Simulated scan of single mutants.
Amino acid sequence: MSNGSPAAAHYFATIKAALSGFEAYVEQRGPKGPVDGFAAGVLEPYLRRLMASFSCWETHAGFAEQFRISRADSGFPVFQNVLELENDRASAESRLASIPPAQALREEMADFILRQKSFPSALQQQMAERIYLEQIGEGAVFSPAVLPDTLHVSVNPKTMRPVYHVAWGIFDGSQTLPMVYLAAIEDSSEEMVKLLVTKDGRLNPDADIPLPVGGLLNPRLAVRFDDFVVRNGAYSLTPATIAVNLDQDFPELHPKVVRRLVLGPLYSAGITENNGRVNDVLSKVRNGDNAWMFTWTMQEIFSKRERPEKKGFFSTAPAAEEFHIETNDLEATRMGVSAYEKHALVPHDAYQALYAAGEADSIFGNYKVHVISSNRVISEV
């Protein structure tokens, strides 16, 4: 899409409507309410990051030569845009220093119009670039990897270990899909058990933990854990693979649950080409602003038991988790998960069009459907 084109404007309006609708869906469940296996309060910071990224990209499109999205797959911006946003954040301060202040640009633009009797396109691009660079410095965006935060700490009284609830985000480069991860991880490190667990199996009230904590709560493992999630965050890796890798790479850490929320794909008439049948029906929606469908998938893998550590004269084996994969469900087996939920959010007009075309059952299949109208989401229609 070329900058300033009607297609670009329509795309940003569509993704803004889709993310705002998802935000309304999250907010209706309250900050502590469950959203497909996640507490709403866990998702909100990542959603804000994603919306901030799109706000920056929309401004950037005002002076960039073009803005590319993954039309045939996710409907999200291609990964190059994510990398450029991250690089621009690093260089924003030095680039701002080379651009005149906003007030000086406004005065120069007004003077240009009066003298030249034409629009100052070059100055407008400079202004757009200044606004963009100021924007990306104001708040957090959805980076290629949003490093982990420990959100909650508890104790498993059966194992007498602290349990960390850790969240992180990954923007997958190959599938161009943003994802949020949440894991419940027990820590058997002697020093952390001694620090955090009382003799009666409770969280030590004297341990001052200013949650959320940036990184894994165990400082000895935090850097390695950051590196692990970056290397093991790709969409192509199943949750089972990620959980097994985590279990094997960190003998002291015992992942009991790993959840992944995959945001997207987005389907939009006239923009995406990821599903011909869906796009064909959406193209018949009378109000083009409502001709979209946004989907997301929650995936979960959990440990059904822990094999105890083995010690012998000739070999030893650390404790290991046995993860449950639901083999009675072919899609769960393909995903490498214990359970999953697929969701679709559609404007009321689009749902009516899909229903009238007799396509609702075949398109939505095993999706949980949510219809948005006037910023109110009606679920399980």
Rank of each mutant, 00 (worst) to 15 (best):
S174N: 13
A317Y: 08
T14Q: 01
K32M: 11
H10D: 10
V180W: 01
Q80R: 13
V153E: 04
D73E: 12
L47T: 03
I113D: 01
A339V: 05
E84L: 12
L147A: 03
I131T: 11
R376H: 11
V381R: 06
L216G: 05
A64F: 01
E65R: 10
E186T: 03
A167C: 14
F112A: 14
S55Y: 09
A360R: 07
V35N: 05
N275Q: 08
R48Q: 12
F313P: 00
L177V: 14
G75F: 09
G264F: 04
L354Q: 03
A72K: 14
I185A: 07
R89T: 11
M127L: 15
P144A: 09
E23A: 06
I301R: 01
A356F: 04
Q124M: 15
A92D: 06
A64H: 05
A72I: 06
P219W: 10
R305C: 00
K194V: 07
F22C: 01
A40M: 07
R161W: 14
R71G: 02
H60K: 15
D329Y: 00
D349E: 15
F119K: 05
M51Y: 01
T297S: 12
V223A: 15
A356M: 10
Q175C: 10
K310H: 11
R89N: 08
A102H: 11
I372P: 00
H343C: 13
K117M: 13
G21L: 03
R277T: 12
L196G: 08
P265E: 01
S189D: 04
S268V: 07
S188L: 03
A9Q: 14
A140E: 15
E108T: 11
K368A: 14
M127A: 15
W296D: 00
K194I: 00
M335L: 15
M335A: 08
D280E: 15
E322D: 13
L50W: 05
F302A: 07
R220E: 14
A317M: 12
G336M: 00
G137A: 11
E138I: 00
V281M: 11
I99F: 10
A72N: 12
C56S: 15
L221W: 03
P120K: 08
G288Q: 14
Y132E: 01
N366R: 14
F302L: 04
Y25E: 12
E359D: 09
I363D: 02
F323Q: 03
N81H: 13
Y351A: 09
G62C: 08
P100D: 14
H60Q: 15
A353I: 04
V166R: 02
E93D: 08
G264V: 09
W57P: 06
G137I: 00
A97I: 03
E300M: 04
L354V: 05
L50P: 05
P308D: 09
L133A: 06
I185Q: 02
G233L: 10
G137W: 00
G288V: 10
E65L: 13
H343P: 00
M1V: 12
G41Q: 01
F38D: 03
W292P: 03
N3M: 01
G214S: 15
R68I: 12
P157A: 09
V369T: 12
T272V: 06
M1K: 02
L114F: 11
V281A: 10
E322F: 05
G41L: 02
R277M: 07
V213H: 09
V141K: 08
P265F: 04
